[in-house]
C-alpha cells in the first residue's frame, strides 16, 4: 500500500516496514515488536479508506524529492490546511503540470503541507488543485476521535 503512495510522485524508497494496526513504521527492535506495540520507531504513514496517507516526516521527504510540486501563497496555505481545494491564483510557482498529475503542495518556506490533483488551469481564478491530503487532516482526525 505505502509503495503506491511513493509511486504517485514518481518516487521509490527501500525500507523494511512493519504494519501496526492501521499504521506503518520502520523499527529495528524486533524484541519489542513481539509485545505488540501500537507505535514503534519511525512512523511512515497510515492506511485510510481512501488509500494510504504519509506521516508528517514522510510528507516532507516526498515534498523535497518529487519533481511534481507547486508552491502556494499564504492565503492559499491557510485555506489548504483547512481542507479546501486550491485556486489557480494562489499558486506562485509550478512546473506546468498537466491535468490529473498528483502534485506536492509547498508553502513559501518550501515545507510540504499536503498534496492534490491538478484538475484545472493553473493560471486562472478557478479551482486548479483538488485537495487529496493536507497536514490539517491530523488535527481533524484527532478531533473526530475525541467526539
Amino acid at each position: 500500500m505505502i509503495k503506491k503512495l511513493y509511486a504517485q510522485f514518481g518516487l521509490t524508497k527501500q525500507q523494511h516496514i512493519h504494519k501496526l494496526g492501521r499504521s506503518y513504521f520502520t523499527h529495528s527492535n524486533e524484541q519489542l515488536l513481539k509485545h505488540r506495540p501500537v507505535y514503534a520507531g519511525r512512523c511512515i504513514g497510515h492506511e485510510r479508506k481512501e488509500g494510504p496517507i504519509p506521516s508528517i516526516n514522510e510528507l516532507q521527504w516526498i515534498g523535497k524529492n518529487t519533481k511534481e510540486k507547486i508552491t502556494i501563497d499564504e492565503k492559499g496555505e491557510w485555506l489548504f490546511i483547512c481542507g479546501r481545494d486550491l485556486f489557480g491564483k494562489t499558486i506562485v510557482k509550478h512546473n506546468k503540470q498537466e491535468k490529473n498529475t498528483i502534485v506536492a503542495v509547498l508553502n513559501k518556506h518550501q515545507e510540504c503541507i499536503g498534496y492534490g490533483k491538478v484538475i484545472g488551469n493553473l493560471y486562472t481564478n478557478k479551482i486548479a488543485i483538488q485537495r487529496i491530503f493536507d497536514i490539517g487532516d491530523l488535527l481533524r482526525r484527532e478531533r473526530k476521535s475525541k467526539r
Binding site: S23, N29, P37, V38, Y39, S145
Partner: peptide
C-alpha cells in the same frame, strides 16, 4: 529508547498523532 504505556484506548489516538507530528522515532508505545 523510550517505552511508553497508555491504558485508556481513547487517548491512544492523540498520543500517536502527537508523536508522529513531533517526529519522534525512538519510542515504542503499548
Amino acid at each position: 529508547k523510550i517505552i511508553s504505556y497508555e491504558l485508556k484506548p481513547h487517548r491512544i489516538t492523540s498520543l500517536i498523532m502527537n508523536l508522529e507530528r513531533c517526529g519522534v522515532t525512538n519510542t515504542t508505545v503499548f
